[in-house]
Amino acid sequence: MVTLIAQELVLNAIKHAFPEQRHGTVHVRLYACGDGNATLEVEDDGVGPRAGRSNQCKRGTDSTVHGRSLTRDLSLFLGGGLQRGQSHTNGGYRVTVCWPL
């Protein structure tokens, strides 16, 4: 399940963060927190939040919206939650998924 979430988030970053052959980096971090939770972070240094890369998770027919729904639904299936937004370190975009171990 976690692999599917990570795969979807990495593919989404590659597809949306680096338009017009722009180069960049995608970081994937998976770690156990001291509070009994696990965290997956996928962060890019791409174009950052913009139309189509918002915090909102809504259902629809657009493939981007489908990907958001998929990652949200998989996160909920794990009993966790998902946050999306601008990276605090590099101006790109970060998605964080936490769930109980």
Rank of each mutant, 00 (worst) to 15 (best):
P49E: 10
G52M: 05
L11D: 14
E8W: 01
Q83C: 13
G52H: 04
E41M: 11
G85F: 02
R59P: 09
G24S: 13
V28H: 15
D44Y: 05
D73G: 10
L9M: 13
G91S: 15
H88F: 10
M1T: 10
G85M: 07
R84D: 00
R29E: 15
S63V: 11
L78R: 03
G60M: 08
W99P: 01
L74F: 08
L76E: 12
L78S: 03
D62N: 13
C33H: 15
I14D: 12
P19Q: 04
T89M: 11
G48Q: 07
K15L: 09
Q86M: 14
P19C: 06
S75L: 00
L11M: 13
W99V: 01
L101N: 14
L74D: 06
C57I: 14
Q86D: 07
G67V: 04
S69I: 06
S75R: 00
D73I: 07
G85R: 02
D62R: 09
L101T: 12
Q86C: 11
G52Q: 03
R50A: 07
V2R: 04
D44L: 02
G60L: 11
T89E: 14
A17S: 14
G79V: 04
C98W: 07
G91I: 07
A17V: 01
L82V: 13
G85V: 06
R84I: 05
D62Y: 08
V97K: 01
D45I: 02
R68Y: 04
